[in-house]
Structures are given as structure tokens and as C-alpha cells.
């Protein structure tokens, strides 16, 4: 595009070649770009639910590192109470399709999900419930804009890249000492 004084400006259209395409997940739930995906959920909160969550907040926060390491596909994950503690919004960035690891996640980390959501979210059936994946899917509110810096890098790729860099630095250190 040319401005009135004739200078060229960059527009999204001229950058298109380098822009990853953000699309719908192949299984239809949430957005996807290259290897990674987003899921955003909005849950109704029981009266007093937010207070209950906050009572356990320190343990919930500390357990996150344990459970997310067990799962190994989650880049980041947050919960925020909104609208005077009447709703809970959750946002996750993770690798791959929605359904692929959903049973693994609830089977491995059911205790953590129950710790966070039982008696907090209205209608939460428990992470061990046979229909937990379907229940979760009903509360998805897809992101309207989503950006991720390295959409071709999975959590595993990042971990491996760190290891490779460390090994490479060690090699260079020993070669130069």
C-alpha cells in the first residue's frame, strides 16, 4: 500500500508469506497453528466456589508442576475467576489434537482437576467421570485471536532443544579449555 506521501508501508497482506495459518483443530475444538493448539473454557462458578479454590491455591499452584510434567504436552495453562467470582475462565496452550491425549490427561491428573474444580465449578462431574471430555468440550469458548511465538515447537521439542544447547556448550567449553 502507498501512503499519501508515496511511502510504502507494510500491511498484513504483504507479510502473508511468513504468517502461520491459524485454523480450527482437525477434531473441531479450539484453534490450531502448526503443532500447537489453544483451548479456552468458561465455567459457571458455585457460590463460595472461588473462596474454596483460593483456600487451596498454594497447593494447586505447586501441584501444577508435578501434573503438567506427567502430561508433557502443555505449554501454559491458567485459571482466572471473573465477573465477581461467578465465572472461571481457563486457557491452555498445548500440542496436537484435542482428543488425542484427553483420556491420558484426566486419567493421570484427575486428582489435581478435582482439587481445583470440585465444589468450585457448577456441574463439574469429576475428572473420573466417563463423560468428562464431553462435559469439558461443552464449555469451550474458542479464542478470537491467538498468537504463539514458536508454533512448530512442541513442549518436547523445547526440552530437547535445551538439552542439545547444554551439550553443545559443554562441548565448546571443553574444546576451548
Amino acid at each position: 500500500m502507498m501512503t499519501q506521501n508515496g511511502a510504502a508501508t507494510e500491511t498484513p497482506a504483504t507479510q502473508a508469506a511468513a504468517t502461520p495459518t491459524v485454523a480450527r483443530q482437525p477434531d473441531g475444538l479450539g484453534k490450531r497453528v502448526d503443532e500447537i493448539a489453544e483451548i479456552t473454557v468458561l465455567f459457571p462458578v458455585k457460590p463460595g466456589g472461588a473462596a474454596r479454590f483460593r483456600q487451596n491455591a498454594a497447593k494447586i499452584q505447586s501441584d501444577a508442576w508435578y501434573y503438567e510434567k506427567l502430561i508433557g504436552t502443555v505449554h501454559d495453562f491458567r485459571f482466572t475467576f471473573i465477573n465477581n467470582d461467578t465465572q472461571l475462565i481457563g486457557a491452555v496452550t498445548y500440542d496436537g489434537d484435542f482428543k488425542t491425549y484427553i483420556t491420558d490427561i484426566f486419567t493421570k491428573a484427575w486428582a489435581w482437576f478435582d482439587e481445583m474444580l470440585m465444589d468450585v465449578v457448577d456441574g463439574y462431574p469429576g475428572a473420573s467421570h466417563p463423560e468428562i471430555a464431553e462435559w469439558t468440550a461443552k464449555h469451550i469458548v474458542e479464542a478470537d485471536m491467538w498468537y504463539a511465538s514458536n508454533p512448530t515447537m512442541t513442549v518436547q521439542d523445547t526440552t530437547r532443544a535445551q538439552k542439545v544447547m547444554q551439550a553443545f556448550d559443554t562441548l565448546l567449553d571443553s574444546a576451548s579449555s
Binding site: 501441584d63 508435578y66 484427575w110 486428582a111 469429576g126 466417563p130
Partner: peptide, 13 residues
């Protein structure tokens, strides 16, 4: 990790 809740799944049949 000691803070992780232990227990059994309630629906195990």
C-alpha cells in the same frame, strides 16, 4: 513431590 494428593479414584468399579 510430597504435596501431591494421594487417594483412589472414586468411580473405580
Amino acid at each position: 513431590m510430597t504435596s501431591v494428593q494421594s487417594g483412589t479414584r472414586t468411580t473405580a468399579a
